[in-house]
Amino acid sequence: MTDSSTRHPADNTLRFLFEEADLRGEIVQLDRAYTDILALHHYGPGVSRLLGEFLAAAVLLATTLKFEGKLILQARSEGQIPLLMVECSSDLEVRGIVRGAEQATAERFDMLLTNGQLAITIDPLKGKRYQGVVPLDGDSLASCLQNYFEQSEQLRTRLWLAADGQRAAGLLLQQLPAQLVSESAVRDEQWNHACTLAHTVGEEELLGLVPADLLHRLYHEEALRLFTPRDTRFRCSCSRERTLNALASLGVDELESILEEQGAITMDCEFCNTRYEYLRDDLSALLPGAQDGPLH
């Protein structure tokens, strides 16, 4: 196993294209973005690794977005993890949460997410929200995502994922619409060849090798074009304004009841543990008769 203390700094993605085939790929490695999220919560080793795989997968899939918005992976199950949700924006800002898994001790995917479903949501800043759902009936997140893409009739897409509690990493391959090669048999051969080579990569290599070195190890006989890496980071999208909008849905009577009982209303963000507190004066826009004034 590669010693985490000897690893190169990560938190970025590297895009690459095959020069002689209609194929693209992406490699992501997350260090601080991953450990910053883990530091906010108390998850068991199996949960932490699975969350890392979800984070890596969300970033890889978000790199395929051609518009501003975000991609959301949400798993619900009857297993030791009732809910796991990860978001990645088109700017590659990620956040994630595992709910109800404080006592989870399992290591296996099928025990953590028993009888589960995975929802993949594309939420553009402008335009229609789209969601696809697939059963979590594979032996890994990568295999479940493979099933999703095979069933959804989208571009052929494969992912390889790994996480060890210190780093999360992933490799994505995607077949592009025919431009360089039109013969379906040749396209199939190129796709299968690229996937077969990718399937030889181990978790240690995915987590430990510099992306350019990993690509050389896999595809040194192929002509590849490498792009400038893009940074990714943990950033929560919560805000005082958003929590205030959420309070507006409670209704005046409930707000008054909470204020009378507690003197203030507090809301905690599950993703980043930020606490927002509202006194009566802060809720002037929501409560008739409250002191007028700007919201803090």
Rank of each mutant, 00 (worst) to 15 (best):
residue 265 I to N: 05
residue 245 N to I: 09
residue 11 D to A: 11
residue 287 L to G: 07
residue 27 I to T: 02
residue 51 L to Y: 10
residue 220 H to N: 15
residue 280 R to D: 08
residue 60 L to T: 07
residue 102 E to I: 08
residue 230 R to V: 01
residue 272 C to T: 00
residue 58 A to W: 09
residue 36 D to H: 12
residue 119 A to N: 11
residue 24 R to V: 07
residue 9 P to F: 03
residue 139 D to Y: 09
residue 183 E to G: 10
residue 52 G to L: 11
residue 100 G to I: 11
residue 275 R to L: 14
residue 115 N to A: 14
residue 112 L to R: 11
residue 60 L to C: 00
residue 226 L to R: 11
residue 138 G to W: 02
residue 75 A to G: 15
residue 78 E to V: 11
residue 281 D to A: 15
residue 137 D to I: 05
residue 196 T to G: 12
residue 220 H to D: 13
residue 164 D to M: 14
residue 23 L to W: 05
residue 196 T to N: 11
residue 87 E to H: 12
residue 135 P to H: 09
residue 81 I to M: 02
residue 247 L to Y: 09
residue 140 S to R: 04
residue 245 N to V: 05
residue 89 S to K: 05
residue 66 K to A: 02
residue 212 A to N: 11
residue 47 V to T: 15
residue 138 G to N: 10
residue 263 G to D: 05
residue 15 R to P: 02
residue 195 C to L: 15
residue 277 E to R: 12
residue 239 S to V: 09
residue 96 G to I: 08
residue 267 M to C: 13
residue 105 T to Y: 10
residue 175 Q to L: 07
residue 212 A to I: 01
residue 87 E to A: 13
residue 206 L to H: 01
residue 20 E to M: 07
residue 215 L to A: 08
residue 46 G to V: 07
residue 114 T to E: 05
residue 258 I to W: 08
residue 140 S to I: 01
residue 274 T to C: 10
residue 217 R to I: 03
